[in-house]
Write a protein that binds this DNA or RNA. Structure first.
Length: 589
RNA sequence: CGGGUCGUAGUUCAGUUGGUUAGAACGCCGGCCUGUCACGCCGGAGGUCGCGAGUUCGAGUCUCGUCGGCCCCGCCA
């Protein structure tokens, strides 16, 4: 038999996703995982799978490999050799790229056997995330994860190419470094050579990238792991990847332009064009109109000020609040006015659950009569005026809240998001990229009883606010900006302080003593004194960007080996205890 | 640390008011099958109901504790 003279060479000629009708007749060698076996008795089909796709292999009656193929099980790694054949018209499979052809197995070798996997490697079988994480190597074989990881690679390459084209150099910075001031809790690494001393893993390469500007590197980027020892969320992992960028001799405009080109390159990977420049709004506008510093601008629904209606009105609660400098704000929810009274009351309960003191609503009956939870107390006239001011239609529901500062807007901002989602007002196909600018420089921390940097302590104040730094620090705006994608913060940066005197002044305000500043980052303050170019930059969250464009709910789904919400690696079993000998070497016992 | 939710076969789930021998689907094992492609048909094996106490004549079901997954608050420059 000629078949028995066949054997399988050591290397493949094609991958499992590339055979086409033009290959018909060629003798090929495929290698991959057994995806599925369809044993029809005297005829057996087998799908062999690799990263590139799926190819059908057929073994016919009388073939020498038919007996052998029956020994094969799912997830075995095999090699198959044989001719490519065109499938007959009725047996084409349009669902796979190689579906017009199949390979007739003349030889088959089992390269390695596989235990029965704990779950099926397909897209149909649901698997809990816990099991997926424990057997991540199997989960990564599934199309969803394979596509996410591939997308991440293509985005990463697009980022590198875009920044390279703009003259950036990719430069590595240390992972064993020194604790940065302020910010998140550090991961610490004990030093063996220096008893009682520790390295810190970087929360970001902030100081190093600024020093690279002092060094004259001009434009730097790095796709780099960062570490923060804080509690986890769907969009937060203890180690995550930043696209870290810094530029010399620039203002905000140059940073925005570079990042806009970069984001266009990212979306180009998906075949999407995004218009630039991206819209900008100030922190104050964002907070006032959307109740968030990362507003989702895929839909409108701005929060409006109706303080004027209540300033002189009958409704005492609002009148007095406005008199004390507060504001009354309103959110129109299109189409929500026809909900039942009970549903609307539920919204008020929801507001109370969010910690609000209260929330008021107004709507019109189908006949146009004003209905409201404060109809008697505020009077029909005032409420009609609200409806007119905000431009609410017959079917709309208007929610009203009052408070000091951004309090009312923040509450309504949460309903803006929740209700837009519930009412289906968000166009999932839209892409909204925007800049939020003019963040406050500092914020009062109740827990620490001192001013803290809102961004980080190297952020430059806006020059026109400099004279207010000491008298009214809360009013000082920073040259800081965030990049927002569909209501998610995907990056933040600033123009930095490049003069040592101003940096020292900021530290005084932050109650960071000279001694402390010297001890923790004296090297950086020294560097600033040797000729520092004006500079600024940004850090973008690569995991978040990929998750958002992949439509995944969690950044875990775009990371090969993520940790659980308790910061545990279920596959590797970390963290774990270590030998006492290791502890002794590290002077930890 | 706090709030919510889930934990039953390898996997995903069902399991009534606390009551006989805890079920289904997929997977797995065996058999049949020459054009399947989530093949089909027949048969079979498979359970520490997360763990530990408690209430009860009797607990998958109720109570308490504990462990783990997920979401959220705080936290995250």
């Amino acid at each position: 038999m000629t078949e028995e003279t066949h054997s399988v060479p050591r290397t493949r000629t094609h991958n499992c996703g590339e055979l086409r009708p033009s290959d018909v007749g060629a003798d090929v060698v495929l290698m991959g995982w057994v995806h599925r076996i369809r044993d029809l008795g005297g005829l057996t089909f087998l799908d062999v799978r690799d990263r590139h796709g799926l190819t059908q292999v057929v073994a016919r009656d009388g073939s020498a490999v038919l007996a052998r193929i029956k020994q094969v099980r799912p997830e075995y790694v095999i090699g198959v050799a044989g001719p490519v054949e065109r499938r007959s018209e009725e047996t084409l499979n349009p669902k796979i790229a190689t579906g017009e052809v199949e390979v007739e197995a003349r030889a088959l070798v089992v390269l390695s056997e596989a235990r029965t996997p704990p779950f099926q490697i397909d897209e149909e079988t649901p698997v809990s995330e816990e099991v997926r994480l424990r057997y991540r190597y199997l989960d990564l074989r599934r199309a969803r994860m394979r596509e996410n990881i591939g997308l991440r690679h293509r985005i990463t390459m697009a980022v590198r190419n875009s920044l390279d084209a703009d003259g950036f150099w990719e430069i590595e910075t240390p992972l064993l470094t020194k604790s940065t001031p302020e910010g998140a809790r550090d991961y610490l690494v004990p030093s063996r050579l220096h008893a009682g001393e520790f390295y810190a893993l970087p929360q970001s390469p902030q100081i190093f990238k600024q020093i690279l500007m002092v060094s004259g590197m001009d434009r730097y980027f790095q796709i780099v792991k960062c570490f923060r020892d804080e509690d986890l969320r769907a969009d937060r992992q203890p180690e995550f990847t930043q696209i870290d960028v810094e530029m010399s001799f620039v203002d905000e405009e140059a940073v925005f332009a570079a990042v806009e080109r970069l984001m266009q390159a990212v979306f180009h990977v998906l075949g999407k064009e995004v218009p630039a420049p991206f819209p900008r709004l100030t922190y104050d506008e964002a907070m006032t109109r959307y109740g968030s510093d990362k507003p989702d601008l895929r839909f409108a629904m701005p929060i409006q000020d109706v303080s004027g209606v209540f300033r002189e009105g009958r409704f005492k609660v609002f009148r007095e609040l406005v008199a004390r400098g507060g504001s009354v704000r309103a959110l129109v929810v299109p189409g929500a006015g026809r909900q039942s009274r009970a549903q609307i009351d539920n919204l008020v309960d929801e507001a109370l659950a969010l910690g609000a003191k209260g929330m008021v609503w107004v709507r019109q009956s189908p006949e146009g009569a004003i209905q409201s939870s404060i109809l008697k107390a505020a009077g029909e006239e005032a409420l009609a005026q609200v409806v007119e001011t905000v431009g609410a239609g017959r079917d709309d529901l208007t929610l009203i809240a009052a408070g000091q500062g951004y309090e009312a807007s923040v509450l309504l901002g949460q309903f803006r998001l929740r209700l837009a989602e519930r009412e289906g007002l968000i166009d999932e196909n839209r892409t909204s990229l925007s800049w939020v600018v003019d963040f406050p420089l500092m914020d009062w921390s109740e827990t620490e009883q001192r001013l803290v940097s809102m961004h980080h302590p190297f952020t430059s104040p806006r020059p026109e606010d400099l004279d207010r730094l000491e008298d009214d620090p809360a009013a000082v705006r920073a040259r800081a900006y965030d990049l927002v994608l569909n209501g998610n913060e995907i990056g933040g940066g600033s123009i930095r302080i490049h003069r040592a005197e101003l940096q020292a002044r900021i530290f005084r305000l932050l109650k960071i003593s000279d001694e402390e500043a010297q001890a923790r980052f004296g090297f950086f303050l020294d560097a600033l004194q040797y000729g520092t170019p004006p500079h600024g930059g940004i850090a973008l969250g690569l995991d978040r960007i990929v998750a958002l464009v992949a439509g995944e709910p969690s950044i875990r789904d775009v990371m090969a080996f993520p940790k659980t919400s308790a910061a545990v690696d279920l596959m590797a079993g970390s963290p774990s205890s270590v030998d006492r000998r290791q502890l002794r070497e590290l002077h930890l016992e």
